[in-house]
Amino acid sequence: MVAIAGLEHHFGTGPLRRRVLDGIDLEIHAGEIVLLTGPSGSGKTTLLTLIGGLRSAQAGSLRILGRELKGAGPKQLTLARRRHGYIFQAHNLHRSLTALENVRMALELDGSLDADAMAERAGAMLAAVGLDAHRQAYPGQLSGGQKQRVAVARALVSAPPLVLADEPTAALDSHSGREVVGLMQRLAREQGCTILMVTHDSRILDVADRIVAVEDGRLSPR
């Protein structure tokens, strides 16, 4: 699923060049829920963006879903991203689109569905996250927890094999946070997808199959 070996990453150039990741080796298996923890500035978010194909890798090997992303061009990275689901710290929903349309956007990338099928799948997914009654609501009309649930629906609606999440509970109260993570866990199990989640939130550590700690750009065993 994810196989990383000797991954290094630097920010900046010349005298300002700074190493943020150093000799990362990590394997994640299909269906696993892996939590990535560590103090801020440890490089865990950089690791997540590299795995997600949002940044190009500089050195080492990075095989995601059977494809090497080291040396991949912008076009290949864009295509690789279509096989991932993303959940962000902020919900990042489009404010001009309804909940249903936000979820539907993720399906437009998959050329196989027509308009009616997309609406149907998106609606079913919203129902699965308990927002059936809010299909036509705009993000501005939803609570923080509801918005993050729409974001979860958007990330999972195309049944991606890999879901990447960055502090998905940081902006939520403990109850909604718990709810969102529980939802991710349940849907991931149903779809058999792998989850890699960066989090500080100690309240949700129990959903993990494995916890990986990052410190100063290196993985530290726990």
Partner: peptide
């Protein structure tokens, strides 16, 4: 005003 949303679309795999 929509840079964040556009970046999200780019992350989702839109060209």
């Amino acid at each position: 005003a929509h840079l964040g949303e556009y970046a999200t679309f780019r992350a989702m795999g839109f060209r």
